[in-house]
Simulated scan of single mutants.
Amino acid sequence: MTILILSRGKCGLSRCITVYLVTMAVADLLCLIFDVIFFELQELYFPDSFLDYTPVCRMKFFLLFVSVECSVWLTIAFTFDRYVAICCQQIRTKYCTEKNAKVIVATIWGLSILENIPRYFVSEPQIIIDNISWFCIVKSSRYTEPAWVTYLWIDIVLLTFIPFFLVLLFNGLTIRHILLTSRIRKALRNNGNDPEMESRKRSIVLLLLISGNFILLWLVILIHFICAQITDVEFLQSDYSNPFAILEQVGYMLQDLGSCTNTIIYVASQAKFREELKNLFKYPLAFVTKLSK
């Protein structure tokens, strides 16, 4: 519904913002499909199916991490775009365009696919029955061979440390600029009503909610990784009595939750989005009512 509503372009958002939000919604949807449905639910309700063939299992992991990485870096791109739009007036008209947004989105998807290609080869068959390989487990060499260890560190840095730093940096600079500009305009106008500043503050609410949601829901994963490096515990433990295993699984749960909450943020912060959502539900009801007459 989010993709459909935003794609119609009736939410009062610029085409540039719409491109980012639609592609973020697509990435979040893919996260839910490949992680929640094809991974968690598939193991519970459809065990030992063709989805457990090793090549298919490898592809599931590959597509899962591609969608997660795209979701993360599209959030960063959207945050930077809003920073430029508000704080960098000289380059705003050239950078914050629909064409430029599409190029950036395509670049993020392409680089995410290339960066995650090694994930397809990081696992091996768990069991072979009648010359058919089943399931996939991470190779033990991933934690010992220098190449795999380096790749793991690069992956963690790209998914956690750098995104956290960039989100905090751009949001901090944006908020600082808004507060400074607001004080200057208030002093010049000598009244409490400034339609331009009120509009600018409302536009930044969406940015802060989405990026703040990202920081809070990815914080547990970041804490677990730091703890794992300090204590040398292994990832993906199956002993759920271990507090580190519990922390890791909670982090993954919150990561999946992050793919669901953006729609709620749109509804909470955008009046026109709420109106379009109501209309989306009214059309089928009106059609059914018309047929029943």
Rank of each mutant, 00 (worst) to 15 (best):
K282T: 15
Q237D: 10
D48Y: 04
A77F: 02
I156H: 13
N193A: 04
I156K: 10
K293G: 02
I127G: 07
T160G: 06
A271Q: 09
A27M: 06
E115S: 13
V26N: 04
G12Q: 00
K282A: 13
L208P: 04
S112G: 09
K139Q: 10
F235V: 02
I215P: 04
V68R: 03
A245G: 14
S49Y: 03
L51Y: 09
K272A: 11
A268C: 13
S211Y: 10
L168F: 15
D256K: 15
E275M: 07
D81Q: 14
L168I: 13
T18C: 08
K10I: 10
W73V: 00
N131Y: 08
T97C: 10
R202N: 10
L6C: 09
L280A: 15
N190I: 04
C31K: 07
I117V: 10
R15Q: 10
K60I: 14
L159R: 15
I108R: 02
D256S: 15
V36L: 15
V68Y: 06
F121T: 15
R119A: 08
L158A: 13
I91W: 11
L159F: 00
P284W: 07
S112V: 04
V56E: 09
V167F: 14
R202Q: 13
Q90L: 00
I5R: 09
S241R: 15
M24W: 04
E40S: 07
E145T: 12
E196W: 10
V66F: 03
K139R: 08
L208Q: 14
S241W: 09
P146L: 03
N171Y: 00
Y20W: 08
F135D: 06
G172A: 07
V105A: 03
L208W: 07
I132F: 06
L222T: 11
F80H: 15
S199V: 05
W218A: 03
L41V: 00
V26M: 11
T54G: 04
D155E: 06
V250S: 14
D52V: 02
L222N: 05
P55V: 00
D194W: 06
F46A: 07
N242H: 14
I128T: 14
Y20F: 11
V288P: 01
I154R: 11
L32E: 02
A228D: 04
A25D: 01
A25S: 13
P243L: 09
L169W: 06
L219M: 15
Y53H: 06
F170K: 07
D81K: 03
P243T: 05
S199D: 12
W218H: 14
I204N: 12
M24C: 13
F135P: 01
K272F: 06
P125E: 01
S140C: 11
C96A: 15
I221L: 13
T54R: 02
G251L: 05
L159T: 06
K201T: 01
W73E: 02
R119M: 14
L51P: 02
R274Q: 09
G258F: 02
I17R: 09
M59D: 10
C70D: 08
L166Q: 00
D28R: 01
F121N: 12
T75C: 05
L166W: 01
A147Y: 12
V103M: 03
